[in-house]
Design a protein around this nucleic acid. Structure first.
Lengths: 239, 239
DNA sequence: CCCTCTAGGATTGTCGACAATTTGCGTCCC
DNA sequence: GGGACGCAAATTGTCGACAATCCTAGAGGG
């Protein structure tokens, strides 16, 4: 080794991301934030010229998003941004509840509770900041970041992978139904209590709080439905 | 309508599957059954000539499998079949436990318990048939089919999607560690008891049995680890 | 007035070739 | 003999063009 370790920190190979991945991420953000509203048709030719790339890489990016469930492809018709009905809201939160419950369990029993709690508290601080600045977008971002951190902390490759799409879809829900928010203090409070239970290692309370958190969200976003029912509302257009 | 309904059953448009999907499915099966052992390098050019298609559709199929987690891609190096370490076994079963728990809950509370139980019993019958014929491959197939049916019965698009990869990876585990099976009677018994609890609507028992089922499998496939620990074994090469 | 058929346009699906990048080996110098 | 440099082969990444398929609008006939 010609260079002593510790020098030159943060040096990473340039452009370690494939162009298809870059395009996919940009489209993901656009869908997530609502810049591409649900139902929008995405033409390959048009996007190719927008991104200044050929249809090859772009197509790969699209395929990726389709397999993630953010786009739906109709053969020889086109690609469309999915639109979420009440049934989908229910489905998303039911799936999230399953994933995050598992992540919470692993966080609780992983032996690293305090470190994880510190990480989570940081995102709650971001939520508080966004609250005082009255920035609903930043608030949602921090909220989702909380759950992302929790799932990452589980250390499970597969939970992380499965949750990625769910969190994006959650963001779509929040964007579409902006304004149905609960009081921000309440929102921060729920997360804080979750952290307290985690730090204390109180499994029962933590899991119950998490479930209630999901239940609250579902009832707010899709009024009249409940995760406890075990079945989606009778609205067409879901699974 | 020129044709009365009920006539011409089972008529479906020809080739409603994209070629990339066909290729992906074939490769999936090959990986699942062990025809393509973990670590195998897959050359695009070679596969393209094997499948008699251009590199375009083949590439899409590969990308799909990569995003599913069955292949890992190293830029400008090649595509390789993933190999599963003990940490992955743990991770897979932890994730499956989360997914199937949620599916079981929805099956329990969905109001269609008897129909679902009938479907599940059919797969158990297949297991029994495979057992008397001493066909371990068919036995594993029926076993996985049981869990696939359970998840499908949940009616959740997202649970189904997330479980697809997990079940394929499970099959890879079973293929790689063929011979560590428990007694077939015991294996059938576990599933039968699960169905009984479901039919009776006994949530507590059903969930406990399911958890024990996963725990058993993990301890058999990766001795010395337990789902209850909340953390993966100290073997490198996992998340 | 409505239904059917046809022609047009547009979009995706597929293909072959070229360019960029990495790996491995051979050679040269010390 | 050991190490570093440079070249060449192989592989992936990218591109533009062609072919197949599907919606739509319009004319024609009943």
């Amino acid at each position: 080794m010609a260079l002593p370790p510790g020098m030159l920190p943060e040096i990473e190979p340039v452009s370690r991301e494939s162009t298809a991945a870059v395009i996919a991420r940009q489209l993901r953000d656009a869908i997530m934030t609502g810049a591409l509203p649900p139902g929008t048709q995405l033409g390959e030719t048009e996007l190719a010229s927008r991104f200044q790339v050929s249809r090859g890489p772009l197509r790969e990016a699209m395929q990726h998003l389709v397999s993630e469930g953010l786009l739906r492809s109709e053969r020889h018709r086109g690609l469309f941004v999915i639109d979420l009905g009440p049934g989908d809201v229910y489905d998303i939160y039911a799936a999230r509840s399953a994933i995050e419950r598992a992540a919470m369990l692993r966080a609780l029993r992983g032996g690293d509770r305090d470190r994880i709690a510190d990480l989570l508290e940081h995102t709650v601080a971001e939520m508080a900041t966004a609250a005082v600045e009255d920035d609903p977008t930043a608030l949602s971002t921090a909220d989702l970041r909380f759950h992302e951190v929790l799932i990452n902390a589980s250390g499970s490759k597969r939970l992380v992978r499965m949750a990625r799409t769910l969190l994006i879809e959650t963001r779509m829900c929040l964007t579409a139904l902006q304004g149905t928010y609960q009081r921000v203090e309440e929102r921060v409070e729920e997360h804080t209590k979750l952290i307290q239970a985690l730090r204390a290692g109180d499994e029962e309370t933590a899991l119950a709080l998490l479930e209630a958190h999901m239940e609250d969200a579902v009832q707010r976003l899709a009024p009249g439905t409940s995760l406890r029912d075990g079945h989606a509302p009778p609205v067409p257009g879901n699974a």
